[in-house]
Every structure is written in C-alpha cells, then in structure tokens.
C-alpha cells in the first residue's frame, strides 16, 4: 500500500507537481494497480532470464563516423525559449 509521502517522493522523482489534495486519491489508485500486479509473485521464475529483446536480433556495427548534423536551427526551432542557437532555461548556477 502506497502512502502519501511515497507518492510525493515518486512525483518529485518524475518531476510532476502533484497538489497535496491529489496525493491521497493517487496513492489509492496506484495501490490498486500494485495489488493487482502482485499476482505475478505466484509465477515461478527461478532460472528464467528477464527478457531483454523480444526478437532474436544481434545489434549491428557501423564505423564510428559523423553521419548527420549541422541542424542547429532546426533543432532549436521548437524550443519554447531559444537564444542565439542555445536552449534557454531558468538560472541554474547562482
């Protein structure tokens, strides 16, 4: 069962502002989902590898060369705040 403070903590980790009034209902909903997924504990998975790739595929190699780039203006075109080819953010270092 998740409590309010756990939800507050994961909301901070996920960088989503959750008003205090919403913590309790969210804790309730997430706990409901966690209770439901708890059924997986019944499955014996001893010696079973966690899936890492759904198709049996080997990653391919390519030469380590620059193949694309030089699109500074395209890359920053969608930024809510861009200045002189940079992304602008609130002051980080005092």
């Amino acid at each position: 069962m998740l409590d309010k403070s756990t939800v507050r903590n994961i909301a901070f980790l996920a960088r989503i502002d959750v008003p205090d009034a919403d913590l309790e209902p969210l804790a309730h909903q997430l706990s409901g989902i966690l209770d439901w997924v708890e059924q997986l504990q019944e499955v014996n998975t001893d010696g079973v590898h966690p899936m890492s790739s759904v198709t049996e595929m080997t990653m391919t190699w390519r030469p380590d060369e620059v193949t694309d780039g030089g699109h500074r203006d395209k890359v920053t075109a969608n930024a809510p705040a861009a200045r002189d080819g940079f992304f602008a953010v609130p002051k980080v270092v005092e």
Binding site: I10, Q29, L40, V43, H49, P50
Partner: peptide
C-alpha cells in the same frame, strides 16, 4: 499519462526494480 509515469517511476525506483520490473521481464520471457 501521469498515473503511468508515476507507476513506472515507482517500479524502477531503488529497492523495487527487482521485485517489479525484473520479475515482470522474467514472466514476459515465459
């Protein structure tokens, strides 16, 4: 979307990764 992000953040967070995420990936193999 928020609910799923929070759920995902929780199952990947320290102390729960093995119990939830790795367990689910093992069942997925089965």
């Amino acid at each position: 979307v928020k609910r799923r992000i929070l759920m995902g953040t929780y199952v990947l967070s320290a102390g729960y990764y093995d119990a939830y995420y790795l367990k689910a990936q093992r069942v997925r193999t089965l």
